[in-house]
Design a protein around this nucleic acid. Structure first.
Length: 520
RNA sequence: GCGGGUGUAGCUCAGUGGUAGAGCGUCACGUUGCCAACGUGAAAGUCGACGGUUCAAAUCCGUUCACCCGCUCCA
């Protein structure tokens, strides 16, 4: 694999384990595929990212494209909701896509059953019926493609064929043995498995008795919790369109192949905004959030060319976004995706799809519409959704921070933005005697009232600096012989290895300046 | 779900049927005193798991789990 970033994912994973950023879940039992735990340093890092998001999105004053202060409120909805939520959102149908696989050696492809068609091409010159397998979005499309496929596989067919497509799902799902008649769209061998359900939502049961009557789902996205609370928020706060609801929380998806460390986990955490707007303002708000969110990721330390903003092509757009102002991804070039990129956050104009769906399925219908005093108009607001992955973001911070440096004892250091660094500063007595530990401990106790700081009196000073380099601690404060005479300490900078002396009474002020939250 | 690879101490690895090892890290004591210093010592291993072959298995066989790579999937 090419590594334009010059960073090895294996080494990053090893450091994460060694220093306590990320462990495999249930490791002593052999681990469990797709689940990861955060160790002491990783927990602080992820918390810093989530807190920065909350501060910058919900708490901090921000001016929108209309020149007014943005209204944003928080929400904390449950992971398990009424199952109808997921019928309304389309997840029950979407997540139950049956799949068919091809058993032929060398093919072994997997297809969504609803996209697999058998197309009848009439009689070949010897009078035999000819069918080809086609993968397409619709019957019409399959009929269009069929002759080209027959040509590619040199399958002889009727001189004037009238292609007729049959859907695997509709025609064959009930009688699995009939699948033997079905050619594989990839290799044309009649070796497809019967359709098997692929349920991407986690299921459970609410109540002690398991039955279909009390089946529930673990949410596959936090967004629906916001949509179903739309009316509650409008009715209980003084917010009015345009306004946003922000939520952080766990979501669950039975990914087919969890892979790439924490990048594709089955349990993961989202940071989502649903920003409700008048449909006529979609363009401005979409552009605003897209640019704002891209700038935010840069502000927390993803400053290199490894971060990019990518506008979606028309054919990638989700069903609810086809006619909208657009969708874009904020992407990071991880060592395991390089030279490609992996998604950190998607910013999508979801139109009024979700609110309409819930209005329909809940029976509330027009009662779910929003009444806009200013416009004297009742409507379903449109939504701009910036939806970010907290675990993916944390992983990007780790990959970005990882900086090999053979010239220093640790061989590597974690160059976190000070605002993101799990440990902000470490306090060392140069020598663990002669009154230095007492002074150092006093400083440590003072600083830990406000920041995550570390105190380490043991072993050589070089070893202590090296350990802090691997943890990504930006500042080390050392109490030495001179401190006892003039009340100054040395500040050692992680990135430059430079040192300077500052007054011990100025350390708090120094850290406040350096760590203070970044402006977007 | 398919194919390939890997799995021995916290980490990196050695160990091809016969008493489980090294370096680094960790901890303690001493020494040193601004970049993983030195000395002494200590803790630390179900050899991924289960089963089989064998007098004897980290080693051979089977199954399984996890991770990595390539497909596939990612509404």
């Amino acid at each position: 694999m090419s590594k334009p970033s010059g960073k090895s994912m294996d080494e990053i994973v090893a450091l994460c384990r060694r220093r306590g950023f990320i462990f495999q879940s249930s490791e002593i039992y052999g681990g469990i595929n797709g689940f990861w735990d955060y160790g002491p340093l990783g927990t602080e890092l992820k918390r810093n990212l989530k807190n920065a998001w909350w501060e910058d999105v919900v708490l901090r004053e921000m001016v929108g494209p209309d020149g007014k202060t943005i209204e944003m409120v928080g929400l904390d909805s449950t992971i398990i909701m009424h199952p109808k939520v997921w019928e309304a959102s389309g997840h029950v149908a979407g997540f139950n896509d049956p799949m068919v696989g091809c058993k032929t050696e060398g093919c072994k492809r997997l297809f969504r059953a609803d996209k697999v068609f058998m197309v009848d091409l009439g009689l070949d010159p010897s009078g035999k019926h000819v069918d080809v397998g086609v993968e397409a979005d619709s019957k019409a499309k399959a009929e269009e493609l069929a002759i080209g496929i027959a040509k590619r596989f040199k399958i002889r067919h009727d001189a004037n064929p009238n292609p007729i497509a049959f859907s695997v799902l509709e025609e064959f799902a009930e009688i699995p043995t009939d699948m033997q008649r079905f050619p594989c769209p990839n290799c044309q061998h009649r070796t497809l498995t019967p359709p098997r359900p692929f349920n991407l939502m986690f299921e459970s049961h609410s109540g002690p008795i398991q039955s279909d009557d009390n089946k529930v789902y673990l949410r596959p996205e936090t967004a629906q919790g916001i949509f179903v609370n739309f009316l509650n928020v409008v009715n209980t706060t003084r917010v009015g369109v345009p306004f946003g609801i922000a939520q952080q929380g766990k979501a669950f998806r039975n990914e087919v192949t969890p892979r790439n460390f924490t990048f594709r986990s089955r349990e993961f955490e989202q940071m989502e905004i649903e920003f409700f707007i008048h449909p006529s303002t979609a363009k401005e708000w979409y552009a605003f959030w897209r640019d704002n969110r891209f700038a935010w990721w840069q502000s927390v330390g993803l400053t290199s060319a490894n971060l990019q903003l990518r506008e979606h092509e028309k054919d990638e757009l989700a069903h609810y976004a086809k006619e909208g102002a657009g969708t874009s991804d904020i992407e990071y070039r991880f060592p395991f995706t390089a030279p490609g990129f992996g998604e950190l956050e998607g910013v999508a104009h979801r139109s009024d799809y979700d609110l309409r769906q819930h209005a329909e399925h809940s029976g509330l219908r027009d009662k779910m519409k929003y009444f806009d005093q200013e416009r004297n108009e009742k409507y379903f607001p449109h939504v701009i959704e910036p939806s970010a992955g907290a675990d993916r973001g944390t992983l990007a911070l780790i990959c970005e921070a990882y900086t090999p440096d053979p010239s220093r004892p640790s061989g590597v250091y974690m160059k976190f933005h000070p605002r993101m660094a799990p440990v902000k500063a470490a306090v060392f007595p140069l020598v663990n005697k002669e009154g230095m530990p007492e002074v150092a401990e006093k400083l440590y106790r003072e600083l830990r009232k406000k920041w995550v700081v570390d105190y380490d009196p043991k072993q050589s000073i070089g070893k202590r600096y090296a350990r802090m380099d691997e943890a990504g601690t930006p500042y080390c404060l050392t109490i030495d012989g001179q401190t006892l005479k003039d009340n100054t300490v040395t500040v050692r900078y992680r990135d430059t290895l430079q040192q300077e002396r500052i007054g011990i009474d100025r350390v708090g002020e120094f850290l406040g300046q350096k760590i203070g939250s970044a402006q977007v």
